[in-house]
Design a protein around this nucleic acid. Sequence first.
DNA 1: TTAATTGATAACTTATAAGCATCAATGGAA
DNA 2: TTCCATTGATGCTTATAAGTTATCAATTAA
Lengths: 288, 288
Amino acid sequence: MELRHLLYFQAVAEELNYRKAASRLFISQPGLSRQIKSLEDELGVQLLERDQTGVELTPTGVFFKGEVDFLLNHIESTKNQLKAIASGKVGELRIGFLGSASNRVLPELLKKLNDNYPLISTSLEELSNSIQVEMIQKDKLDLGFVRLASVPEDLEMRPVFRDSFSLVVPENHPVQLADFHSVSQFQDESFILFSSDYSNYYYDQIMGICRDAGFIPNIRHKSVHALTIFRLVENGLGVAIVPTSLKEGYDLKVRFMEIPGIPQFTELSVIWKPKNRNPTLSRVISLV
Amino acid sequence: MELRHLLYFQAVAEELNYRKAASRLFISQPGLSRQIKSLEDELGVQLLERDQTGVELTPTGVFFKGEVDFLLNHIESTKNQLKAIASGKVGELRIGFLGSASNRVLPELLKKLNDNYPLISTSLEELSNSIQVEMIQKDKLDLGFVRLASVPEDLEMRPVFRDSFSLVVPENHPVQLADFHSVSQFQDESFILFSSDYSNYYYDQIMGICRDAGFIPNIRHKSVHALTIFRLVENGLGVAIVPTSLKEGYDLKVRFMEIPGIPQFTELSVIWKPKNRNPTLSRVISLV
DNA sequence: TTAATTGATAACTTATAAGCATCAATGGAA
DNA sequence: TTCCATTGATGCTTATAAGTTATCAATTAA
């Protein structure tokens, strides 16, 4: 067994089609067929179910795919760390974050990081909650900033920032901050939300706020990006409920009004995998 | 880079001598020299410091050795797990069941499963007959516990538990067990049933029992959950006819009275798809 | 000084991955 | 139904690169 086999298997498992996988790997289909077959022979198990219709993963194959993803990611990360170590940097840290984490917590962390370990380099990526969890589990990411109620067993989670919710309205909206006492004042408006596949937890909370105020919001638009949501609000397409800290950093014709007297809040948490072998990680954990 | 390179590097890093490492790997020394060199070239770092005296690891090499050990061990353990999974010794079994199966059959099966195959994990979901059939056909479920007269061709079915029917009445109902001889004594009461979309078969049987007793029941409430039905009975909203085995496990102010002299019974069956490729399944089938 | 180490290099051999042409089986469209 | 496009598998050939042998220069110990 060679890494080649793992890489090939990964491609086939993702494409579920030998020809497509082969062209993605820039090799011929027969060559790929034979390599996969020899992999199965060596492992002594069947990984893929194939007929003239297509390809499917066996349950064993599903397990193996997970391990292969992990291994290949780990190797990739090791390669990068190697270069960092050899060039005198201490290491590399791959950080994932929700768009709504970029305003407050992340800049602070990066500053602290730079002060304490000036030689640690970072790569930042804006990703959804679920993708971050998955990538951290597979060693494709070292640290994640998410809004989640819980994470899988093999991950650790620490809350880092608690935020209230604000209603976002167009600048010229008739309801002024002084008159604003309940979300129910907006029950006839359209609502713009973060997509629920971006964060179910967030989605449920917004629904909870409206339910507590005695109405079910009329959701007209959903988006994964804060900026998009604000643009829609700006153009009068509805109002939005977002974490208050998003107030800073955007220069738009919208007004933030913190929602008074509600129990809901949103909590940004750091997550990581204690088993992650990146030596840089353990040092950074102590900073957050 | 291939696994070979990692294995070769590991040997050299441990022997700190190319010739010894080469003979341990059953290859020639020049071949090993070149493979290590090409590994260093590809990674772009120097892993080993060598002169005519011998070999030493660079700091980068020390780090890499740790990662290589980890990776190769992980691969070895993955290979072993693969075989265990393919043979069904470890694995996951997704089980669906009707609420009314939870009292008797299911706990027994889970105990047996745990005794015989402690490494098989299970996920349990309470689902209706029709949903179970559908999910099993789609390989979304491995095993189902249903009450059905028949299942589609591609599924197998085996009866596992035969149960009589009992009438459920409020604790203080005037009719006592000793006076109870026919359902017709209750023809003027309201009846509470399991929803027919939950199980048509069950629904038809209840109707059959009443028809045989010479009346058509006045059905006032329907529910998918046994507990809900019992709560309604408890509060005097009607009487219910349910499988007798539901008697256990609920602490409510209701009385069960087995219906005497009727031919109807209800049979809980396991269903599964013979074509399902989960290796765990075949092992478990033999247990039920 | 000599003999026995060390790893590196050049030239050659061989194993095998990859490529091309082609096949049989399947499924959808006409 | 028939036809055509698509699926993965197979036989044979080619090319890449791993591995071999022979040999080298440099170092160390006797």
